[in-house]
Each structure stands twice: as structure tokens, then as C-alpha cells.
Design a protein around this nucleic acid. Structure first.
Lengths: 107, 107
DNA sequence: ACCTAGAGTAAGTCGATACTTACCGTTAGT
DNA sequence: ACTAACGGTAAGTATCGACTTACTCTAGGT
């Protein structure tokens, strides 16, 4: 039951602003938990909990480094999310086209 | 204060599974509210409320048609979301590269 | 050995939000 | 005009989830 994440989880995970902020900070490079918590408006345990969600969504990975746990972005999660998105985008255009034709019919 | 939506709103909006399901059904073409509510596990007012959120996020548009309100997907929302995503994707790759170099340094 | 730092987990709280039912306005058909 | 269909809104509830403090565990330094 390790990497059982879908793009949906990533979507929900990035829906939260705090989580998005954490993730964005990780985009600049790997960081330990207490480093991440530094500039945040929330406490370190809160950050830990968010990181857990992000990890379950496949958006970040962690590895131990002494007593520190260093988190880094994982391309897997957003990769899947982006792929899903592209397909979505295509279907959205189709849907929009259908809507346009539907509207044209009304004239 | 009409179209003041950012990709962030769209992310949060699509985070909810019910809302995602509504949106996905709209991808097949425009639908009236009661038609949307048909196959849903929730009541029509709930669908209405979700549609409001989706509209505020710029993901759908509505137009009156008699007493019915027909909703359709709007490319604006996901367009912006997709653009944001692509930029994110690029930065994620950079971040991942930074993480990899960081890991290489540890050897 | 001991203490400190780093971080995950438990338990509890509080606000947001996804739902419900009830109601009201509007449009169309007869 | 009357009625029915459609759908948004109000008000209330209840669940979820973001956050806190307190704790426990592990790894390193001295």
C-alpha cells in the first residue's frame, strides 16, 4: 500500500493554501522539517501533518539524515497530476465546443 | 469584482470530489441543474451550491434558458490552472534536480 | 551516561464547509 | 390568472480537517 496515489489526491492536497505554500518552498530545494516550519505561520507539528498528506499524494519524498528528515519534491505526483490535467484540458475544450454548438443551435 | 479568480481557487474547487464529479459530467456537454443533480448522491440545492463555487473559480459558466439555467465548462478556469501547472511543473523539475544534486553531494 | 535537537504521534478544539429541508422568485404552459 | 417546473437562497446541522499543546522516540554530541 505504498504508492497508491492518484492525481485526485494531489489536487485535494494542493487545495489547501498552507500545504501549497509548503510545497512551493520545497520547489527551491530540499529542506528539513524545522527549516520548513521557520517562516510558516503554523507550528512544526502542523507542518509535519501537512507533509504527511503531501507525501501520501506522491508530491514529496522524505529521507532521514541523522535526526533530521529532509523533504524534497517528487516529480511523480505533479507528473501524474499534469498528465491528468492535460487530458482534462482536452475534454474541456471538447465540452466547450459542444457548448458553443449548442448555443449556435439556439439562434 | 466579477472575474477575480486565480488558479488557486480552481485547485481548491476541484479538490472536492463531488464538485469534481459535477465538473466531469459537464465535460460531456452543457447541462441544466436538475439534469446534473439526476445521477448525483446529493440533492439539487447542494449541486447549486457547488456550481456557484465552480463558477466563482471560473471553471463553469451559466446562461438562462427559459426557467432553466444551463451550465457549461469554461476554458478560462482550467486554462489558467493548466498554465499555472506548467510553470509549477518546470519549477518542480528544477527542485527535483536540486534534490538529486544534494543527494549526490552526500556520497 | 546524559542531555539536546529534531521530528512524528496523540488528543482535543474550533472553524469551515458540505449537506439537509423549507421557502421564495421567475418563467412557461394552459 | 393558475399551476407547475426550475432553480437559487436561508437557516440549521454535522462532519471534516487544520491547528494547537503535550508526549514519546531516536540520533548525536560532549
Amino acid at each position: 500500500m505504498a504508492n497508491r496515489y492518484q492525481p485526485l489526491d494531489a489536487l485535494a492536497a494542493l487545495g489547501d493554501p498552507t500545504r501549497r505554500r509548503i510545497f512551493e518552498r520545497l520547489l527551491t530545494g530540499p529542506l528539513a522539517v524545522h527549516e520548513l516550519a521557520e517562516g510558516m505561520p503554523v507550528t512544526r507539528p502542523a507542518v509535519s501533518q501537512h507533509l504527511r498528506v503531501l507525501a501520501e499524494a506522491g508530491l514529496v519524498t522524505a529521507h532521514a539524515e541523522g535526526t533530521r528528515r529532509v523533504y524534497a519534491v517528487s516529480p511523480d505526483g505533479i507528473g501524474a497530476l499534469r498528465a491528468w490535467m492535460d487530458e482534462f484540458w482536452g475534454r474541456a475544450l471538447d465540452g466547450f465546443r459542444a457548448a458553443a454548438e449548442d448555443a449556435a443551435k439556439e439562434t
